[in-house]
């Protein structure tokens, strides 16, 4: 009788132990955790109202690059730099020519007469066929070239390391610098928290500069005087969020802006006045922790986005 009691006790104990272990195992299993009171959701900023998306992706070009860095379009040809090379590609995707370099390029700009390939500290000038004309000497030890543009023989080079725009003639002789200082107390020079500092001329031959730390796009005269600017500092879809956005921009044929952002990666279009127009590519189009795509726009307003993570050139046209 006594042994029977002990046996029943042991069976009950075993059932309790098995139950506790099973409950503990099932509740602490990955993916089946109780709600987390400290979770920060970025979903409200990554989800975009589909009515705001006014472009559609029509074509992707897989690129033969491990680390694509920059893209530009001129005269119906696409120029892509990365790794230690530049590829000249037809809009059909056919490779026309490949040019090798001894350094990793960071950016590329085509004027129609020349190709400017920017490396970290110096740049090379090439013909539109990709033949090297000359190389410029390194500017300084802390130089980080992020963007190049040119107008009427005046070459402007964005130096994110020094937080200035360097101005040269076509031979590479320095013609001064632009620091972005102005009497307007809201503009305090270029704030460049990370190496994203883009510049471009629009169809009206106006020099526009991203001041990423201020979330502004600023228009300067050729002499470096601030003419006008617009700002879009907000986490909402119509603004620029984070520490350094927009990371890249390009101009539409009508003078509007196309911008790409880092952090929450997205591509958007703005009117020439800076008013938000719509979304080209929502964050869902890009992989998690993606980098901001470099942008180029052709004469017909087709937007080419260089996806650095998927190593693709993605084409967007208006719906």
């Amino acid at each position: 009788m006594k042994n029977k009691g002990i046996l029943i006790f042991l069976i009950i104990l075993a059932v309790i132990i098995v139950t506790v272990v099973t409950i503990d195992y099932s509740t602490s299993k990955r993916g089946e955790l109780p709600p987390n009171p400290y979770e920060l959701s970025t979903d409200p900023f990554t989800k975009v109202d589909t009515s705001l998306i006014i472009f559609k992706e029509t074509r992707d070009f897989a690129l033969d690059f491990n680390e694509p860095r920059g893209v530009c379009i001129k005269n119906g040809q696409i120029f892509v730099v990365g790794d230690q090379k530049m590829q000249i590609i037809e809009p059909t995707g056919k490779l026309i020519r490949e040019v090798s370099f001894d350094q990793k390029p960071a950016t590329v700009y085509c004027s129609g007469k020349n190709i400017f390939v920017g490396f970290r500290k110096n740049l090379s000038l090439l013909t539109m066929d990709g033949n090297k004309i000359m190389g410029w000497n390194a500017f300084s030890d802390s130089t980080v070239i992020t963007s190049i543009t040119e107008f009427e023989g005046k070459v402007f080079v964005a130096d994110a390391g020094k937080r200035i725009i360097r101005k040269f003639d076509i031979e590479g002789k320095p013609q001064g610098i632009i620091e972005g200082k102005s009497g307007n107390e809201q503009i305090h020079g270029f704030i460049i928290p990370s190496p994203y500092f883009d510049i471009a001329f629009n169809a009206e031959n106006e020099l526009w500069v991203v001041n990423p730390g201020k979330h502004t796009l600023e228009n300067y005269t050729m002499n470096g005087d601030l003419r006008t600017w617009w700002k879009g500092s907000s986490v909402r879809i119509d603004g620029f969020s984070g520490c350094c956005n927009p990371a890249h921009f390009a101009f539409m044929p009508d003078g509007g802006f196309v911008t790409s952002e880092k952090g929450i990666v997205r591509i958007k279009v703005y009117k020439p006045s800076g008013e938000f127009l719509g979304v080209v590519a929502a964050p869902s189009k890009f992989s998690e922790n993606a980098q901001a795509p470099d942008l180029a726009v052709d004469d017909q307003g087709k937007i080419y986005a260089l996806d650095l993570d998927k190593k693709m050139l993605r084409l967007f046209i208006k719906k």
Binding site: Y38, L40, T42, F45, H188, I191, P193, S194, G213, K214, V235, S241, G242, C243, C244, G263, I264
Partner: peptide, 27 residues
């Protein structure tokens, strides 16, 4: 327009909200 951000280790509970905010929007 520069600000420095310093963590008070005694107050921090390791919830990672700031880390997610910094990673999503910043450097």
């Amino acid at each position: 327009p520069y600000f420095e951000y310093v963590i008070n280790e005694d107050l921090c509970i390791g919830c990672a909200k700031c880390v997610k905010g910094c990673t999503s929007f910043g450097n």
